[in-house]
Design a protein around this nucleic acid. Structure first.
Length: 368
DNA sequence: AACACGTGGGG
DNA sequence: TCCCCAAGTGT
């Protein structure tokens, strides 16, 4: 039986009223217009079952929808899955998240990347609790005013959690599409699934597409040429040195990065500056204290969005009672698990200590 | 209007 | 290995 909930009915009524040919014929016709009904019929059969998604007939929880949308910004579902589960377990409600410490939130996010999202997530949770009584605004405009929620995410949450007639694409496309088809409801999610499973960047599965007929790029055989991408510049390699100071009991010297910018608010071992012309042979000059620093073999390579980085790793022993230099702290080996260490720093520690740090569980491979 | 901002997986 | 990218936002 076809799963249809109230939101869908509202969405379909206007679509059915349009003057297009019947959907079945439309799908086959080469010159037919793309119909929302075709897309939604496909969605009924192929919708993905995702933890943050409501089952057919159920209502999505705004907290889950919001959390998933923030995590999914520039991030794949496979990467998000385990983090989403862990977050929900640790912060079951927006109130729990709002009252958590910044360190706890950053630690839970560590490894997911784009850490400004975590800072804004926390700020958003606190705003929802303090200014909205713990309820998310149910309009695009209200959502848009919250930290970390831009035009895309506001539309996505409004549509998915509140059934608003918002297409989660940029504002211009949304306006055109919504006027063209008078669609609403879960059109947004249907479009997302189509893009994720059929209309993929490479080798799109056109034969399975509900919009095979009307697709102009496919008709021309040029589907892989779209969308046209802007050329991106190559980031220049930067180098630096990282200093892993170890006490006899295994404690490691750490500090917290400035709240904004690259890896903002995350933990790190002290490092030199990262520069294109850095000379790691003179790295000792940048050490946090005097010691017999030993160079670990090899380097740590890491690629950020806009530049690659190579870090030399130096390991030094500190006395049991050595005080932490200004702005730094000693963290026990067990305490490392609670530190918001980005993957770059996990690589550094792994190389320095000759062992992998306890990793958070990764999601099982999953297709589609 | 550009640019900064992480990471892991697939081809 | 190398290159590309994946549900964008903030400045």
């Amino acid at each position: 039986m076809r799963a249809v909930h109230a939101k869908r009915r509202m969405a379909e009524a206007p679509v059915a009223a349009r003057s297009d040919p019947a959907p079945v014929l439309a799908a086959a016709g080469r010159e037919a217009k793309p119909s929302a009904a075709d897309l939604l019929a496909w969605y009924d059969r192929h919708r993905r079952d995702l933890p943050w998604r409501a089952r057919p007939g159920e209502t999505a929880e705004p907290y889950r929808v919001w959390l998933s949308e923030i995590m999914l910004q520039q991030t794949t579902i496979a990467a998000v899955r385990p983090y989403f589960a862990a977050f929900l377990d640790r912060f079951p409600t927006v109130e729990a998240l709002a009252s958590a410490s910044s360190e706890a939130v950053m630690s839970a996010w560590a490894g997911l990347g784009y850490y400004s999202r975590a800072r804004n997530l926390h700020a958003c949770a606190r705003a929802v609790v303090a200014q909205h009584g713990g309820r998310f605004p149910d309009t695009e405009e209200g959502l848009r005013a919250l930290p970390g929620i831009g035009p895309y995410t506001a539309a996505a949450i409004a549509a998915i959690a509140f059934g608003r007639p918002a297409a989660a694409v940029d504002g211009n496309v949304e306006r055109v599409v919504s006027r063209l088809h008078r669609v609403e409801g879960d059109f947004a999610q249907a479009l997302m699934d189509l893009g994720a499973t059929i209309c993929t960047p490479k080798r799109p599965a056109c034969a399975l597409c509900p919009w095979l007929g009307p697709c102009r790029a496919r008709q021309a055989g040029l589907q892989e040429n779209y969308p046209v991408k802007a050329p991106k510049r190559e980031g220049l390699l930067r180098r630096g040195a990282a200093f892993v100071a170890v006490k006899p009991d295994g404690a490691i010297l750490l500090r917290t990065r400035p709240p904004k910018g690259l890896l903002g608010g995350m933990a790190e071992v002290p490092t030199s500056e990262w520069r294109g012309d850095y000379d790691s042979a003179k790295a000792v000059l940048d050490a946090p204290f005097e010691a017999r620093w030993r160079r670990a073999p090899g380097v740590v390579r890491h690629v950020f969005t806009h530049f690659p980085l190579e870090l030399a790793v130096l390991v030094g022993r500190a006395a049991a009672d050595a005080p932490a230099p200004e702005g730094m702290r000693w963290t026990s080996r067990a305490g490392l698990a609670d530190e918001p260490l980005p993957n770059l720093m996990k690589k550094v520690l792994a190389l320095a200590l000759g062992e992998a740090l306890p990793e958070r569980p990764k999601a099982a491979r999953r297709r589609g």
